[in-house]
């Protein structure tokens, strides 16, 4: 059976920590990093990378275009 796995890469310096990606993620993949970037924003990161399905919801809703999404089908 094939399994879809996704991953996101966040441009942490350009992230403003609005949390809309986290809120709109259907698999609770995303969390907000405790650390801050040089502007003082907590930035998004993959808290549960195993959960990501590469649906792009986070990237689509991100107002600053800081999320890049990858998706791959694995044969199990």
């Amino acid at each position: 059976m094939a399994k879809i796995r996704g991953a996101i890469v966040v441009d942490t310096e350009r992230c403003k920590g609005c949390e809309l990606c986290m809120y709109n993620c259907p698999t609770q993949t995303i969390g907000m990093e405790h650390k801050v970037n040089s502007k003082g924003y907590h930035y998004a990161y993959m808290e549960n990378p195993e959960a990501c399905i590469g649906c792009t919801n986070c990237a689509v809703v991100c107002p600053d275009g800081v999320i890049t999404v990858y998706k791959k089908k694995f044969e199990q």
Binding site: R5, G6, A7, V9, R14, K16, G17, C18, E19, L20, Y41, G54, T56, A59, V60, P63, D64, G65, V66, I67, T68, V69, Y70, K71, K72
Partner: peptide, 26 residues
């Protein structure tokens, strides 16, 4: 294994440059 160019499904449009928008978060 996933983060490879051939697996890319979403990236900010190249018509936007890398400057940070002046808008408030969200």
């Amino acid at each position: 294994e996933i983060i490879k160019e051939e697996n890319l499904v979403y990236r900010k449009s190249a018509v936007l440059n890398d400057k940070v928008f002046n808008f408030c978060p969200g």
